[in-house]
Simulated assay, not measured.
Amino acid sequence: MNIKIKYIVSDLNGTLVDAMPIYTRVFCDVVKRQTGIESPNIAAYSIAATGTPWDEQFSHILEHHKLPKDAVPKLMDEFCNTVYDETYSLFPKAEALLKLFKTKGYRVFITSGSGTGPMMKRLYEVGIFPYIDCLLGFDIYKKGPKHIEMLAEKEGLSLKQFALQSVYFGDGPGDMRLAKNAGLFAIGVAQTVDPELLKEAGADLVLAKIGDALEMDWGKLEISI
């Protein structure tokens, strides 16, 4: 049986908004200032962990260096305060893609590892606020299965019903694992990590850039079950 797509679920930073170079730089700076740890391995780890909640990334670094993990909230506060003050731009053709989704009647949802309020502000500042039906940030629930469950409930569907009508866009392995664990068709966008990392994490399809999704035949896209 084939089911037509009704819902688009997407990560924001690194997928629609060109944010990961800034986020990675700030992550490394915060680790250095707060712990004294300075290593190119920090940036490499954070990039490879794209899609993993930031508090978990900080926790991993502290644990790896045998430092107390109770410092995570302080690192998160500095990280968030810094990245929220930066200026960002959309990836090329991201707005055109969102316009296409709206003309087709798809509901567009954002799940983010950043704060809901600042990300709503970011949507507005980069000009895509009108195209987004709902945004969930980590301050509501940590980015993970709960976000997908909430979106399904919002639409009056079971998780399985919602997943079978949804496509998920993300730029990191963590995004792909989240999508696949929830049963969504996972599209990896290789703007942050190597395409092979997205495939290994379960991506059903990998695009080089978010704008490449404009070339897909969305009118005929169906999920087979």
Rank of each mutant, 00 (worst) to 15 (best):
A208L: 06
R33W: 05
L178K: 12
R177K: 15
E38M: 05
L159E: 14
K146C: 08
N181G: 11
K220Q: 12
E56Y: 11
P118I: 11
A190H: 11
R25Q: 14
S89R: 14
L197C: 05
Y84M: 12
D171I: 02
I61Y: 04
W54H: 15
L136C: 02
Y106Q: 00
G172A: 05
V206K: 07
K143N: 11
K104V: 02
K93C: 06
A152T: 05
A71Y: 01
T192M: 07
F91A: 02
Y141F: 05
K180I: 09
E222D: 04
G51E: 01
K99I: 13
K6F: 04
L184H: 04
K4L: 04
N2H: 10
L157A: 14
A179F: 02
P21Q: 01
L205G: 02
I8Q: 08
G202Q: 12
L178Y: 01
P118M: 05
Q161G: 14
I3F: 10
A49W: 09
T52N: 13
G219P: 04
Q191Y: 01
K209D: 15
F58I: 13
Q57E: 14
K146H: 10
D77E: 15
K143D: 09
D175F: 02
I110A: 01
S112C: 13
A19D: 10
K143T: 04
E155V: 09
E86L: 15
A152L: 13
L135Q: 03
L90G: 15
P40H: 01
I128N: 01
R33I: 04
K69S: 13
L221T: 09
K66W: 03
E78G: 00
F79Q: 09
L100C: 05
D11A: 07
Q34M: 12
L178Q: 13
V108Q: 03
R25M: 02
I132W: 03
M76D: 08
L67E: 00
Y168E: 02
G117H: 10
L159Y: 01
K160Y: 10
L157K: 15
Q161A: 15
L178G: 06
K146I: 12
A213K: 12
C28H: 07
N181D: 14
Q34W: 02
G156K: 11
K32I: 00
L62M: 03
F169W: 14
G144W: 09
T24Q: 06
K66T: 10
T50M: 11
G174P: 09
K199Y: 08
L159K: 14
D70W: 03
P40Q: 09
I5D: 04
L221W: 13
P53S: 07
C134A: 06
K154Y: 12
D11I: 02
Y124V: 01
N2I: 03
G137Y: 09
K99H: 05
P73R: 01
T24W: 00
L16P: 10
T24F: 11
F109T: 02
G144L: 10
K93N: 15
K104C: 05
E149G: 00
M150E: 15
P195T: 05
N41S: 07
G183K: 08
P21H: 08
A190C: 06
G127H: 06
